[in-house]
Design a protein around this nucleic acid. Structure first.
Length: 259
DNA sequence: ATGGTAGGCCCCCTA
C-alpha cells in the first residue's frame, strides 16, 4: 500500500497538479492540506473521475483537509475530541482496515504568539486523541503538514532557525510525545540523503537554493512500521509551473512475502 | 533584524 501527504496551498489552483501526480504516482491514499475550499466548492467530480473516493472538511480562505483513496472511506471524523474549533485541520478515515489520519497542524506564526499557544494546545489534544486511536486500531498512519521540523537534520540552516517557529523545543517536545506513543517517523526508518526537505518558502529563491525544512511527515504505528518498504520525498512537483510551496511525501508498506 | 512571494479576498490576512 502506498500512502502520501501533500500541502497543496489552494486545491483550486493546484487541482491540475494533484490529478497529474495521482496519475503518475498512483498512491492508494493521499491526504491533502490547505485546500482553502468550502465543501460545496470541492472538486469531487474530477477526483472521482480520476478513480478516487474522497472525504473533505473545508472552510473559506484558510485551512481545509481532504483524503483521497482507491477504496471507500469509513468512520470519517473531522474534529479533535475536546477542542471546539471551527478551523478545518483534521480528517481521519478507515480505508481497507487502515486508520488513516490526515492533519494540518497550526503554523504558530512566531514563538510566544497567541497562534503559538493555540498550536501547542492543539498538539496536546492531538496527542490524547492519537493515544485513543492506537487503542482502537492496530494499523494507524498519521500524515500531514506537521509544521514542525523534528530535528536539526531536517533544517537547511539550524543556526538561523534555532528556537524559531517550526523548530522550537516545545514544538519538538510535543511531536516527541506523539512519537513516544509508538509512532515512527517513517522517513527516518531508512537511510536518506542529507538536506532532504518537503517545504521551501516561496521567497528569496529558497527552493533553488534548497533552503527548506522537512515538516511534512508520515508516522506509522508499530504494525505498519514492521511492514515499511520505502519512505521518500517526491521533489518533482515542486519544480512544476506554479507549484505549491510543499512537495508530496510518500510511504509504502506491505506484509513480508507480499507486494 | 528584516523582507521577500503566493493565495484568497476585498487592500489586509496567513503562511
Amino acid at each position: 500500500m502506498k500512502v502520501a501527504s501533500w500541502n497543496v496551498n489552494s486545491l483550486n489552483v493546484r487541482l491540475p497538479h494533484v490529478l497529474d501526480w495521482l496519475e503518475a504516482a498512483q498512491p492508494d491514499i493521499l491526504g491533502l492540506q490547505e485546500t482553502k475550499l468550502t465543501d460545496e466548492k470541492f472538486p469531487s467530480e474530477a477526483i472521482r473521475e480520476a478513480g478516487y473516493e474522497v472525504a473533505y472538511a473545508g472552510q473559506k480562505t484558510y485551512n481545509g483537509v481532504a483524503v483521497l483513496a482507491r477504496s471507500p472511506l469509513n468512520d470519517v471524523m473531522t474534529d479533535l475530541p475536546g477542542l471546539e474549533d471551527p478551523q478545518r485541520r483534521v480528517l481521519g478515515a478507515t480505508v481497507d482496515g487502515l486508520r488513516f489520519i490526515n492533519l494540518y497542524v497550526p503554523n504558530g506564526k512566531a514563538v510566544g504568539s497567541d497562534k503559538y499557544e493555540y498550536k501547542l494546545g492543539w498538539l496536546d489534544k492531538l496527542q490524547a486523541w492519537l493515544a485513543a486511536e492506537l487503542e482502537r486500531h492496530e494499523r494507524v498512519v498519521v500524515v500531514g503538514d506537521f509544521n514542525i521540523a523534528p530535528a536539526d537534520a531536517d533544517v537547511h540552516d539550524p543556526e538561523e532557525w534555532h528556537e524559531q517557529i517550526l523548530c522550537s523545543t516545545p514544538e519538538r517536545k510535543a511531536l516527541g510525545q506523539i512519537l513516544d506513543l509508538g509512532f515512527t517517523d517513517s522517513f527516518r526508518a531508512f537511510e536518506q540523503p542529507e538536506r532532504a526537505f518537503s517545504w521551501w518558502d516561496y521567497r528569496m529563491n529558497n527552493f533553488k537554493r534548497n533552503r527548506g525544512l522537512r515538516i511534512d511527515l508520515i508516522l506509522t504505528s508499530p504494525a505498519v512500521t514492521a511492514e515499511l518498504r520505502t519512505s521518500t520525498i517526491e521533489r518533482d512537483p515542486r519544480t512544476w509551473d506554479r507549484p505549491s510551496d510543499h512537495t508530496p511525501v510518500v510511504a509504502e508498506f506491505a506484509p513480508d512475502g507480499s507486494g
